[in-house]
Write a protein that binds this DNA or RNA. Structure first.
Lengths: 193, 193
DNA sequence: CTCATTCTTGATTGCTCATTCTAGAATGTA
DNA sequence: TACATTCTAGAATGAGCAATCAAGAATGAG
């Protein structure tokens, strides 16, 4: 019947996501999105409706292909506290010179002033907080968690700490100091041997 | 010789700061700044050179009139850990419905992608981290700090936690849970009685 | 009181933006 | 091959933006 869509959707979303992480929603011009994705504006509007539609698809892609993938890779259920630590440390490793931070964190801050936050933001926060709490409870059951740690409160604290690290990374704060801080943080969560 | 400037600079900067906190640098239009400050665009350009000049003045004002004032009020040197706790809790109390967050945090995230961060950002981070470390050392000398706490690492952790709380507040995360988390955090820093 | 100086005002300028639209190219089916 | 359909291309549109400018109002030193 008709001509088939030519572009690779994953590659397009990955490229768009990159631009939105770097420049923010407002700062990302459709021309920059064209250049990054290889699509012409006509195709972008044809495929995603408008710039917001492309952003929605990109932040959804971020949740699945970056955030969830990072969790699965570094912090699967059996990896315990070391897995959580690896998850935190992984956000310190961005490609050279890049300070993209996290699309969710950046979006929370950029669009937090007036309107309600983008739905992906509380969703991602809940995903992380639930993950932290579940892993902490699991460790507690196995006697690997320091006695004074209460999983629900510690999960909220880890969520805030995670967002804070992403702010500091975005502003080029010294990553070595952040890495040492995280090492200590997770040592303190562990039950003494 | 000549006519004197008529407007109250503090009031102008306070109003401009409010707009920049709410809408970000890009999101704040000169028209919105006119409406908030009561100045006409000609006066803004005459007084501050350009929008960036007004922003520079506003973030400087923020550092002195909001951040430093908040520190002096809640966490003077003799106030110890309870002072630091009060400082953290104070960022949870914004006027009704407002989710302005912190101009420094918001700026760090908004302008962190490509160019170097605004000079006020690392300056404010250093101010806070130094403050935290100094207060922790002071408490340690008085035997009021839990034994396992290392002031330099804990100061970095508190800086990240502070930024993270400001991200979560900006995205309307539940403030009660954040308050409980902070209570516990500072309890854990205290030496057991 | 005078007038040089500086401030205020608001229309204007030129630019960039998101979005639309038209024309044409590519595709798969029949 | 011919056609119906969908994609691509890029010029065009209109709105909103930061910044400029010219004209007039206010000021205070002399």
């Amino acid at each position: 019947m008709a001509r088939t869509r030519e572009f690779n959707e994953d590659a397009v979303l990955r490229a768009a996501m990159h631009v939105f992480r770097r420049d923010g929603y407002d700062g990302a011009s459709v021309r920059a999105l064209e250049a990054a994705t290889g699509l012409k504006s006509g195709s972008i509007y044809n495929s995603y409706g408008d710039k917001q539609g492309l952003f929605d698809a990109a932040i959804d892609h971020y949740g699945r292909a970056v955030l969830q993938a990072r969790v699965d890779r570094h912090a699967p259920p059996e990896a315990g506290l070391d897995g959580l630590r690896a998850l935190f440390v992984s956000v310190l490793h961005e490609r050279d010179g890049e300070t993209l931070g996290c699309l969710v964190t950046n979006t929370a801050v950029e669009t937090g002033g007036g309107q309600a936050p983008h739905a992906a933001v509380p969703a991602a926060f809940a995903l992380l907080e639930t993950l932290f709490e579940e892993r902490l409870r699991r460790e507690a059951e196995r006697g690997r968690l320091a006695g004074h740690v209460e999983p629900a409160l510690a999960a909220t604290r880890l969520l805030a700490l995670y967002q804070g690290v992403l702010v500091l990374v975005r502003a080029r704060q010294d990553r070595g100091a952040l890495a040492r801080m995280l090492e200590r943080e997770f040592d303190d969560l562990k039950a003494p041997l």
